[in-house]
Amino acid sequence: MPSLTSFCIPAASLFWLAVTVSAYLFGRAVQRSLRGNPAANPVLIAIAIVSGLLTAGHVPYESYFRSTWLLTFLLAPATVALGVPLENNFIHVKRSFRGISLGLSAGSLVSMVSGAALVKVFGGDRKVALSMLPKAVTTPIAMAVAQQIGGEPALTASLAIVGGIVAAATLRLILSAMRVRDWRAVGLAAGTAGSGVAAAHVAPTSGTAAAFAAVGIGLNGILTAVTAPIIAVLFR
């Protein structure tokens, strides 16, 4: 039986936990000062700072990961928590069932297949193609799927965030060029192709877009978890 003192968190562990939280808070402050610019993503800023410190201090990644296990542990309940906004907006799924089911599955499929295929076409590694495959869905689900199909979860995490930034940055340009003006369509596309990052970008402008983005994030997460292992067979 472990002694009671083993429940005390060692100082080094607290140090890296504090560094991670501070880097994230700093990233949020930077984004706020740039009036919410999606390119100044707080998670990317935090990853850059912490990675830089780990490299500079010659800290092995394993020991850093062990120090901050608490944050990673909370990823599972946070993923489960995505069920709440999905259920809250389920009325929209009922009302626009055909549009959502067709738009979502087509968008999801196109994004997965073209992502992995383009990596192959341009001569990328197999592991990179498999990490690219689930990148459109919300990061925690994307990482779990990447793990399952033989990709690299850490790479997928970065791709998911940068992909979300690309979606947020190009959203208005692309959708207005295609004359897509309905907020339901804008929201669903943002949630399906750019998950949380793109959703946060459209949410302040329209409550409808925010609701449909929540539906897109939740349903695409489930859909990708089901279909990615099947599509991954093509890229083995």
Partner: peptide, 9 residues
């Protein structure tokens, strides 16, 4: 976002 910083690193 904070929760996947360690994994992302």
């Amino acid at each position: 976002g904070l929760l996947f910083v360690p994994a992302g690193c």
